[in-house]
Design a protein around this nucleic acid. Structure first.
Lengths: 248, 248
DNA sequence: GGTCATCCTTGACCCAGATCAAGCGCGCGA
DNA sequence: TCGCGCGCTTGATCTGGGTCAAGGATGACC
């Protein structure tokens, strides 16, 4: 059962990803209630490691606010980010015990979690939850494969443009802007984290961002606040063949 | 209903992946019969494109024999392989209409297919099929993310060693060798296909294979037949921290 | 056996991005 | 207010792998 405190948070969370994105689109009332029973919220501070690679994971859940990263590290310290968790993204591997990745909060975060064992039991009893999870996993698989193209074949400049357009798109779908080509967002990652995502060094990231700024593809206010005056120009720089409709 | 011809093939296919790997581990007899009704076999020749990127896909299925690749191509022709389909691998995106990738047979192939619509209907009616598909999709996601580390952070030599060890491992699990460190297999890919998988050029692939041969990490007979005298040495070259137990 | 195409190897050279190094700017705690 | 640390930028130089180019091997087909 929920304590008063948790209820309050749940109520604040009007567009809680569990409602609109993860598992509940077709839930019946009693299923929703069962979900509520195994649901709880966790807060993390910027820089805090949520799960260490190899750790046992006793929950699944969604990002409510803030950003986390999924990274792999080799013994000699080379690291590669393999996923970026933005609000409404699902975290967890139903049916698996551990995480093969480090999960790290890069900003302050709130996560909406379910205890794993009861969640899995619900999954068995409620087939459409499994279907929804399959959907989401296929989405993640597509994203991972898209990123393989970025890592394997794109130039440094194209990589940066690809990352910026992904973040811009996600940001835009959250804070719906008037449907125009200009958009504004804050970079949620350090240069080093961007480098780890893109398979570059932080110096190259910095240089290419400066170059995009010099060429008018982006405008910078401080180090993190980005304005994209022409989004289709950015997509072009990313080498994307998509038409770039913002609202996917 | 099955015609006589198909039945024969089905019978030959004693370890048909649909039986032992994809969906049927817990199927009841009548479910198996329903699967049989929507099941058919397709043959492809080496070089044949199975699905074009963007095509409608009206089936799902498994590789029975032979090898296929999943590739993405940019407008300017740069291509990145995002998946390698070996025998027993599943192909298809239940719930999705099209494929975002080209699927190409690199050797002669046999696939065991199910018509997509009835398969999806069965999935709804038979929850453990959806669970099995979720399992498999999570496996693919892990593989894709593992490959992101290869593409983003490994050197050319490490990339080649990683690819060889993956193929060797898969080959070994199919044709179980005595549990020793020496193993033998045939490369199922051209140098160019390897390059597309690894984000390299075919010249670099060729040079690095020559180097591994010169250094005694592998032995070559012709261009495709590979002997690995010491598998743990190969894993070492790949920069893998896994212990390399062959039988995963 | 000869021709041709495909796949592969090897060499010479070049360049994008890594590496090494110096310094800037801003926020924070004393 | 100062100093200190962290995140970032920029410059100089180096190098792994790309590019361009020239053959070598193998096998299919005439």
């Amino acid at each position: 059962m929920l304590n008063e405190d948790t209820k309050t948070v749940a109520h604040d969370c009007g567009d809680c990803p569990i409602r609109h994105r993860a598992v509940c689109a077709r839930c019946e009332t009693d299923e929703l209630e069962r979900l509520e029973e195994i649901k709880y919220y966790r807060n993390f501070e910027a820089g805090q490691t949520i799960i260490w690679s190899g750790d046992r994971m006793d929950f699944v859940g969604s990002v409510v606010s803030g950003i986390a990263t999924l990274t792999q590290t080799m013994e000699d310290g080379r690291t590669q980010m393999v996923g970026l968790l933005l609000p409404s993204d699902f975290v967890g591997r139903p049916g698996r015990d551990g995480s093969p990745y480090d999960v790290v909060a890069t900003t302050d975060m709130v996560m909406c979690c379910f205890r794993k064992r009861p969640f899995e039991e619900m999954m068995v009893a409620t087939p459409h939850i499994a279907h929804r999870l399959l959907e989401m996993t296929l989405d993640e698989l597509d994203a991972a494969r898209e990123w393989m193209l970025v890592l394997g074949r794109k130039t440094a400049r194209e990589k940066i443009a690809s990352l910026l357009s992904i973040i811009a798109r996600r940001d835009a779908t959250l804070n719906l802007q008037p449907a125009q080509n200009r958009l504004v967002f804050d970079l949620p990652l350090t240069r080093e984290a961007m480098a780890d995502y893109l398979g570059l060094t932080l110096e190259t990231v910095s240089r290419q961002i400066s170059a995009l700024k010099r060429d008018g593809v982006i405008e910078l206010e401080g180090k993190r606040h980005v304005t994209v005056p022409d989004f289709s120009r950015l997509l072009d720089e990313a080498g994307d063949d998509t038409d770039g409709g913002l609202l996917v």
